[in-house]
Design a protein around this nucleic acid. Structure first.
Lengths: 193, 193
DNA sequence: CGAAAATTTGATCGAAGTCAATCATTGTGG
DNA sequence: CCACAATGATTGACTTCGATCAAATTTTCG
């Protein structure tokens, strides 16, 4: 996939960019092609990068009392970054790894800020992306806090019907805030009914 | 408090606005002074308004299986809106009410979009506010999903030491996703130790 | 002051967690 | 290309945290 096509696609998906601005974005775009299990961000490090996924998927996770807890998944046409490090410039509590062989676009915070300062339409693009992310997190709060384990899993499947084929259940369980065993029992029940 | 001072203050708190832009914002600003228990948004209605709190506090809540569940609180210098209705233009699942006599600034979505389209620095202001909100929601997910009832309460107190003096415990309990009884027991324990 | 609202306290129950063992799937080196 | 080790998923027995139901007590406010 050509870089121009990618920027066009981001522009179409989120908020339109002028040709002029698309050119400028292109200039500061780096494309990565990485194998499954590659690490994009290591725990404890600073990361001023955001990754846009063209193909594949990634997972942000952290260690909570020694246990691996998944915090975010991203698939094609979505962004992933160490939210804490990227936005607050603190060491990243999260690690980010690839769950499949993937093709990514890498943006740095400086590039983004420069583009946003120079191009009003890029500033808007960022605003739109952040707003979408915020709404997604809002949905997640509603689901995680006030639903039963089973309802949470059902909600996840509704939002992402094929996720179980791409992400190991262990990760889904920790993402939902339930144990692997509980998730397994829920799935057992669902099949039988 | 004069309207000019308010806009200046928003500009200082979140992201600077040019004098020109501040003038334009002023023109579409409506100041409200309302009594405790006033309703800003009713459940099931469309609301394209966002409220900035100058004095007082407000609460967004919804009914889940007949029970009142608090979803968001906002205090001085913060914004509150029906997130679903404002951003997705759907009927609001939330109602919003005042917990104290309050002074508010009301913005409509149209005004905001027009200002954002015309003024790059206003677009940035919105971006910054949405980003802050997103980070706050992120913290909330981490706390609500992976902490014990007691830890959640402790986290809340840390972020908002005086909240118990302004918001009834019932609302705090439902916000934290625990029952009033459990919250009361936690508070009992804390005092004794 | 007294009624209503808010909070505390007590007894019991249940959903999901923990610990432990087994079964299934995947992938790598001989 | 098979073997078998490593990883992932299921199942079972038991425990626990916080929910529910119920009642008492305290606070607020007309």
């Amino acid at each position: 996939m050509k870089p121009e096509t990618i920027i066009e696609h981001i522009s179409e998906t989120y908020s339109p960019l002028t040709a002029d601005c698309q050119q400028a974005v292109l200039a500061s775009t780096k494309i990565l092609s990485l194998k499954k299990n590659s690490t994009l961000v290591r725990e404890g490090q600073f990361s001023d990068k955001t990754f846009y996924i063209i193909r594949g998927c990634a997972r942000a996770y952290y260690l909570k009392d020694g246990k691996d807890v998944s915090d975010w998944f991203a698939f094609e046409n979505e962004f992933i970054s160490s939210i804490v490090s990227f936005f607050k410039n603190e060491p990243s509590p999260h690690a980010i790894e690839l769950l499949e062989d993937s093709i990514l676009v890498e943006f740095s915070r400086d590039e983004i800020e420069q583009l946003a300062a120079k191009y009003h339409d890029f500033e808007r693009l960022i605003r739109v992306i952040v707003t979408k992310t915020m709404l997604k997190q809002y949905e997640r709060i509603a689901s995680s806090q006030f639903e039963s384990a089973e309802q949470k899993y059902t909600n996840l499947l509704k939002a992402h019907p094929t996720i179980t084929q791409r992400v190991p259940l262990t990760h889904l369980a920790s993402y939902l805030g339930i144990t692997l065993e509980t998730l397994s029992r829920i799935r057992g029940l669902k099949k039988r009914i």
